[in-house]
Design a protein around this nucleic acid. Structure first.
Lengths: 162, 162
DNA sequence: TCCACTTAGTTGTAGCATCAACCATTCGAT
DNA sequence: ATCGAATGGTTGATGCTACAACTAAGTGGA
């Protein structure tokens, strides 16, 4: 529109890919949230927070680390952890190393919650994303998302190489 | 976790692909919103709404149609259109065909807004998504997103085949 | 024709995210 | 040793989204 020079606009193939991609990006979170909200009274971000803690050593991470692995800003995480703490799934305690830092630890109740919630969530992920794809698709998804993620978050991409 | 049978959990390659994908899904909207908010005082969804109208015949669509192409629910769209109407970018008028229906039409000011905003937005899309990808990546992205979108929104996938 | 059902859209409310402002601690340079 | 800057984190206000409830208009059968 307005400017049609190739450096600015997208070509047809790029345009088609973008439209599909952004549609998925807009719709997928709603699907995940709906299932988790309905079955576990958690947002997808709540679940991710609990899940990341459940995989950490001693079920504990500093807020900054947790924000990194959950793709969140610190204010957002702080609010979410406050709510999850009120519900008894997480405990906060000041770090002894660095007195500015806060450790978030998954409680036993939080651990149970993740275990009870995971199968339903993974089922949704399978239904809407993984099962429609063959092995080649999954490989391509991994590669393409890697390139985009490297742009969206350069440092993080280098740290968590997997 | 808890249940490890292959039918329930994901294998390593699937897991890696999912983690990257969901990271992108969580981060991308923020990047788009930030640029548009900063440069045009629009959310990405605001922009999409205006852009879809700008491509429609007579710059007009019924609310239901507009909701479809913007991947939104009707309540969400209704609120957004109300705001955009207050700002003079959209006009609403009752449909003559079906007296339940409402037509949303892009005003001249709305048209100008889209034109002024598009280059910056497309620049962001290029920077973060398109430019890091080669032609093969774009093709793969298109194919894979097509399969996922077909699950997320079966009817729509059939209608807008492109 | 009447009544039940569906479709189109709006509105109010509650909850989550973003942003800016803020405090406390630590680091780095002089 | 001290002061300025950077880091780690929390909090409050504002704004958008989701959900439920609702009105109005069209549809389809008995």
């Amino acid at each position: 529109m307005v400017l049609m020079s190739d450096d600015v606009w997208l070509n047809d193939e790029q345009q088609r890919a973008w439209v599909r991609f952004i549609s998925v990006v807009e719709r997928l979170p709603g699907v995940l949230d709906t299932q988790l909200q309905h079955d576990a009274d958690l947002t997808h971000f709540d679940y991710l927070t609990l899940a990341m803690l459940s995989e950490a050593p001693d079920r504990t991470l500093r807020m900054t680390e947790l924000a990194l692995v959950t793709n969140a800003t610190l204010p957002r995480l702080s609010h979410v952890v406050s709510r999850l703490e009120k519900r008894g799934f997480i405990e906060r305690s000041p770090s002894t190393d660095d007195r500015r830092a806060t450790n978030a630890r998954l409680t036993d109740a939080g651990w149970e919650k993740v275990g009870a919630t995971a199968p339903g969530h993974v089922g949704t992920v399978r239904d809407y994303v993984i099962d429609p794809l063959d092995a080649q698709d999954v490989e391509d998804l991994h590669r393409v998302m890697g390139k985009i993620l490297a742009k969206l978050d350069p440092e993080h991409g280098l740290r968590v190489q997997r």
